[in-house]
Deep mutational scan, measured.
Amino acid sequence: ENVVSAPMPGKVLRVLVRVGDRVRVGQGLLVLEAMKMENEIPSPRDGVVKRILVKEGEIVDTGQPLIELG
């Protein structure tokens, strides 16, 4: 699984990683606000951040690609 998608609609509050960062399974990639709750979106696997597909403040839909892992 190379693309991390939004599990719910919401607003991207914070991106916690940068392109080139090594991440571990379960590590927070970004914080999504949904229904006034902050939800940290975890990495599904170990890898390297290849691309960040959203910006802070952006509104996303369920299933929208957020981050690509390499």
Rank of each mutant, 00 (worst) to 15 (best):
E1H: 00
E1F: 00
E1D: 13
E1C: 01
N2D: 15
V3P: 11
V3T: 14
V3G: 15
V4H: 04
V4S: 15
V4F: 05
S5E: 08
S5I: 08
S5D: 07
A6H: 08
P7W: 09
P7M: 13
P7C: 01
M8G: 07
M8I: 11
M8E: 09
M8Q: 03
P9W: 04
P9L: 10
G10D: 13
G10P: 00
K11N: 08
K11Q: 13
K11V: 13
V12E: 00
V12H: 02
V12R: 00
V12A: 07
V12I: 10
R14H: 11
R14N: 11
V15H: 05
V15L: 13
V15A: 13
L16M: 05
V17I: 10
V17Y: 15
R18C: 01
R18F: 09
R18S: 12
V19R: 03
V19I: 08
V19N: 08
V19W: 04
G20T: 15
G20R: 11
D21W: 01
R22W: 06
V23N: 12
V23K: 07
V23F: 13
V23D: 00
R24M: 02
R24Q: 13
V25L: 11
V25S: 12
V25T: 15
G26L: 15
Q27A: 04
L29F: 02
L29V: 03
L29Y: 03
L30F: 02
L30H: 02
L30K: 00
V31W: 09
V31H: 10
L32I: 08
E33W: 06
E33F: 09
A34G: 07
A34D: 09
A34V: 12
M35S: 14
K36R: 13
K36P: 08
K36F: 05
E38Q: 11
E38D: 07
E38F: 10
E40L: 04
E40T: 09
I41M: 11
I41W: 10
P42E: 07
P42F: 10
S43Q: 04
P44L: 12
D46W: 02
G47N: 02
V48S: 06
V48T: 03
V49G: 03
K50V: 14
K50D: 15
R51A: 14
R51Q: 14
I52Y: 06
I52R: 03
I52S: 04
L53N: 10
L53M: 09
L53F: 12
L53P: 11
V54G: 06
V54P: 05
V54W: 03
V54F: 03
K55S: 05
K55I: 08
E56D: 12
E56Q: 05
E56I: 03
G57R: 11
E58Q: 06
V60Y: 14
V60L: 04
V60S: 08
D61G: 14
D61Q: 09
D61S: 07
T62K: 09
T62M: 05
T62I: 13
G63L: 12
G63N: 10
G63E: 11
P65G: 06
L66H: 01
L66N: 04
L66I: 03
E68Y: 00
E68M: 00
L69A: 15
L69V: 15
L69W: 15
L69Y: 08
G70K: 07
G70P: 15
